[in-house]
Each structure stands twice: as structure tokens, then as C-alpha cells.
């Protein structure tokens, strides 16, 4: 295992965006040790686009199995001390890894999140950050793309669930919380999230009942642990 940061980028038909995502990882102020791109069955120009990039990049292709399965494939291929994730249609702030490494090591934390800036056609639309006055409890923006986590902590929580098409990160984060792990969120922007017609949450609108299943399972776990 190396002491660096391994980055997992799951992608599905995001050839038009993945270059920007990769650039943002390769141009981090602190270099990452490995980038694993898991192509979840794309039928566009994704492979050819990625081939143009140089760096510690590993490209893995699998039959379409959903974003949770793709992230799991990437995690299994990374042996770094820390793990980070980036959805192929988003991109990171240039100092994301540097700031989060500093926070996780000085704060003896298991994971660090940060502000997410959502944008549409280049214009910042909204952001979620601690104490920004929004009526959102918990502060910070807990998304896979905004997280840096120790590999040991990730494995303690377990892999992403693969039987749901949406809500897989909510389900995973509920288990993170129930495991009593320590996390904080930075106020600085860490990830820029692109809003477009093919975002996962929209694409799988027909699978919205998976959110209900995820929350039901979490409530059941909570009730069992309370008895």
C-alpha cells in the first residue's frame, strides 16, 4: 500500500465531459498516486478520449452494472492509503486533495468532505456549504465526488450497494454514520458539479423507488441496533 491518494472515476457515456474531470485530477496541487477509470459499459468515445491522457491512469471496462458496482471495481483496484471519487461529468477544485489531506491528517479524521458548487452551462448555480444559511442540517456537502477517505475507513463501512441504481451513496453514507466514523466538511469548494439532462438522479427517475428502499433499510438497521 502506498501513502498517496487513489482516485476512482466511474463513467458511463460521458466522453464529452471526462476530459475535464481527468484534467482536474491530473492538475491537483498535490499529485495523486493513481487514477482508476471504470468504464461502466459506455458505447461512446470514452475509451478513445481517455487514451489521449498521460499519467498514472488505469482504464477498466465492465459491462454496465451501475455506478455503485463501478466504484467498487475501482476501489478493489486501488491500494493507496486514501481514496477519492469523482463522477466523470464533474471536476475538482485544483487544491481539493491538498486541503483534504491536510484536514484528514491534522484532524485525525476518517473522511473529509467539502463544498459542492453546482453549475449549468458554465455559470455557478448554487452551492452547498457549512453555515451558508440554507435550511440544511449537517452542513457541508456529502457526495462521493467531494469525499476523501482513508481506505481503511472505507473498508470498515463496506462497498457500495449494487442492487440500487440511485441512492447508493446515501445508503453508503448512512452506514458510515452508523459505524461512528469521524468526518468533517471544508468550507472551500472541492468539487464542481455539472447539471445536465443525463445526471444519474434524473436518468434513473424510473428507479426512484430505490431511494425509499435505501431509507427503509437504514431505518430497519437503526431499529435493530436500538433494541
Amino acid at each position: 500500500m502506498n501513502d498517496g491518494v487513489g482516485v476512482v472515476i466511474p463513467t458511463y457515456n460521458c466522453a464529452q465531459y471526462i476530459g475535464e474531470a481527468l484534467d482536474s485530477v491530473l492538475e491537483q496541487s498535490v499529485p495523486v498516486s493513481r487514477i482508476v477509470i471504470v468504464d461502466d459499459g459506455s458505447c461512446d468515445e470514452t475509451a478513445r478520449t481517455i487514451a489521449r491522457f498521460k499519467g498514472p491512469i488505469q482504464y477498466l471496462y465492465q459491462e454496465n452494472a451501475g455506478i455503485g458496482a463501478a466504484r467498487n471495481t475501482g476501489v478493489a483496484a486501488v491500494d493507496s492509503k486514501y481514496l477519492a471519487f469523482l463522477d466523470a461529468d464533474d471536476y475538482w477544485a485544483r487544491d481539493k486533495v491538498e486541503r483534504q489531506l491536510e484536514a484528514i491528517e491534522t484532524g485525525s479524521l476518517d473522511a473529509v468532505f467539502g463544498t459542492v458548487v453546482e453549475f449549468d452551462e458554465g455559470a455557478p448555480r448554487s452551492s452547498f456549504m457549512p453555515g451558508d444559511g440554507r435550511d440544511i442540517q449537517g452542513g457541508g456537502a456529502r457526495l462521493a465526488s467531494s469525499m476523501l477517505i482513508s481506505r481503511a475507513a472505507f473498508l470498515r463501512v463496506g462497498y457500495f450497494r449494487t442492487d440500487v441504481r440511485v441512492g447508493e451513496f446515501i445508503e453508503w453514507f448512512l452506514r458510515f454514520r452508523q459505524a461512528g466514523l469521524r468526518e468533517e466538511a471544508l468550507e472551500q469548494p472541492t468539487v464542481y458539479r455539472r447539471l445536465h439532462a443525463n445526471n444519474t438522479g434524473i436518468r434513473w427517475r424510473s428507479e426512484r423507488s430505490h431511494y425509499h428502499r435505501v431509507l427503509k433499510d437504514a431505518l430497519d438497521r437503526r431499529r435493530r441496533s436500538a433494541t
Partner: peptide, 16 residues
């Protein structure tokens, strides 16, 4: 009623 996952649900389930 549960309010502990507000941010994640709003962020994860992108609205059209």
C-alpha cells in the same frame, strides 16, 4: 419524521 439526510437526498436526487 426524519431530517438527518436532507442535504444528501436533495443533492443526490437531482431535480429537473
Amino acid at each position: 419524521k426524519y431530517t438527518d439526510m436532507q442535504e444528501l437526498i436533495v443533492l443526490d436526487a437531482i431535480q429537473e
